[in-house]
């Protein structure tokens, strides 16, 4: 109990808050306990469960599940999908942010809303729209069949559905960032004789690099982990059109739980790496964008 009371004393208001605007130690402790307890139950327990289940049948079974040919082909397909979708969406994000943040035009708000649209669409519906387009009875289905082009239930369909799902991730990080930065720097560069490309590469890009990386990290995590949309368009052909999340589902539904969790643990590691990168990038970009005159002065009441 000694450690509990030490912990209780360690819950303090941040520096600079006065007596009048903070709660009693008991209330503070209670709120922290509620918050941490809630997160333990809802967030930490499932995360730990993934690794516990993955090793429940021993290390040998864990490794066997990972080197299984179907698992390896799922890993390859996942990397391929992310390798196509993420760069394309990154280029799009930068282009869209440039047009939206650096210029004024009619309909800007509408465009921003349209870019966010895929976030409001259920993943299953994101898959459905491609089925309606490319499916056997879809709009382009007969033509594709006549030319022997496979999109649905093949890699191209999976890539397209993933692109739709991860479409806004880079753009929505960059638009507010570039809007906040304004156009002064670029106009100054142009005034000093830089070409458009030089201006972008030497002035704009260094200012947004952490934001771009941040967007890429989020986009990649979603691209590798997407399940609902991909599930609808993939056709679940083992060793061919299964991404890692789909492989997890199949193993799980076959009651091969330990193997399912073994593959899932790889994805969980990816998620943890994403969280670490995200935290680091947030810290980096906060430092890069902190104006020295505003951010460094420590708050001292005088």
């Amino acid at each position: 109990m000694a450690s509990a009371s030490a912990w209780m004393r360690s819950v303090t208001p941040p520096q600079g808050r006065s007596v009048a605007t903070t709660e009693s130690a008991a209330v503070r402790w209670l709120l922290v306990a509620v918050a941490v307890g809630f997160l333990l139950l809802f967030l930490l327990a499932p995360l730990v469960a993934v690794f516990a289940e993955a090793f429940s049948a021993g290390l040998g079974a864990f490794l066997a599940a990972l080197v299984d040919p179907d698992a390896l082909s799922a890993v390859c397909l996942t990397l391929l999908v992310a390798g196509i979708a993420v760069p394309l969406n990154t280029i799009f994000g930068i282009a869209a942010a440039w047009a939206i943040a650096k210029f004024n035009f009619f309909g800007k708000n509408l465009l921003v809303t349209l870019i966010d649209l895929p976030l409001a669409v259920s993943p299953v519906i994101s898959g459905l729209i491609y089925v309606l387009l490319f499916g056997r009875s879809g709009y382009l289905g007969p033509w594709l069949a006549a030319h022997d082009i496979k999109i649905l239930f093949a890699a191209p369909g999976i890539v397209l559905a993933t692109m739709f799902i991860t479409f806004p991730f880079v753009a929505r990080e960059l638009i507010p960032l570039m809007q906040a930065q304004g156009t002064d720097d670029e106009e100054a560069a142009r005034g000093l004789g830089a070409t458009g490309w030089q201006t972008f590469l030497r002035v704009t890009l260094p200012n947004i690099k952490w934001g771009v990386l941040y967007g890429i990290v989020l986009c990649n995590a979603r691209a590798m982990g997407e399940f609902g949309a991909v599930s609808v368009v993939s056709g679940h052909i083992r060793g061919e059109t299964n991404t890692m999340p789909l492989h997890v589902e199949i193993l799980y539904n076959e009651y091969n739980t330990a193997a399912a969790f073994a593959v899932a643990s790889l994805l969980a590691v990816l998620a943890l790496v994403t969280l670490v990168l995200k935290t680091v990038l947030e810290w980096k970009s906060a430092r890069a964008h902190a104006r020295p005159d505003i951010a460094t002065a420590e708050e001292v009441r005088v």
Partner: peptide, 18 residues
């Protein structure tokens, strides 16, 4: 001047600061 303690004194009189 700023940093002289005048606001702190006022806030202590008010009870906003201990």
């Amino acid at each position: 001047p700023s940093g002289s303690g005048k606001t702190t004194l006022l806030r202590i009189i008010a009870g906003l600061e201990q």
